[in-house]
Amino acid sequence: MMSEKKTVRFIITRQDRPDSPPYEEEFEIPYRPNMNVISALMEIRRNPVNAKGEKTTPVVWEMNCLEEVCGACSMVINGKPRQSCTALIDHLEQPIRLEPMRTFPVVRDLQVDRSRMFDSLKKVKAWIPIDGTHDLGPGPRMPERKRQWAYELSKCMTCGVCLEACPNVNSKSNFIGPAPLSQVRLFNAHPTGAMNKAERLEAIMGDGGLANCGNSQNCVQSCPKGIPLTTSIAALNREVTIQAFRNFFGSDQV
């Protein structure tokens, strides 16, 4: 039998508290077939010993669905933001570098606070208001082709990868970022959602809104769900141009 066991090497950027400085720690863990970054992190959690053989604290990260639909496990893996649950070890160059998505406030190690994305969804009213005091009956029907098209936009899991990739989303700017913008296009396309179209457009015409996009188009290259973010942004640019004319020259205000 071969005495040497195959291992996987990691360099992980860690941070103990939101306000403490980051530092790097190396780990070397036993290889198992079909491992992904999460199962490797679980191994570190089970046996928190670094590459020097010193006992350390387990690395903190977030996860939930384990099938790339919740977005919680996003982190920067070998320089690119993506979901750690679908990052297979066999496909990654070693040592594997893990870092948090620094566009967001770091809570601890690889765990970040994506609250700003959920606040943005509230700001742009990324929902369809149907609650009333009485039954409003069935809504208008949506053509099947349009439903299929809208389904693509609805795949967004608020993972934050597109914000991490965007050069205009940073601590110097208040740009809302691609994901919530594309959600405006989604909800405005819905026959019932369209009733609040102007409100959503006006929300993204506010400070930090749509106009801050500088067309680097990193978002569309990075989105794990393949959402046509830059098409959404350009389409919204057209919509807000028309909305701005309406608002200024006066037309039906809705």
Partner: peptide
Amino acid sequence: YIAFTAKNNVSRYNYFRNWMFMLQ
């Protein structure tokens, strides 16, 4: 003002339009 609020990242995201963004 626009130029200095960007945080250019062409080394990490080596894409054509990102280069154009930086060069603009």
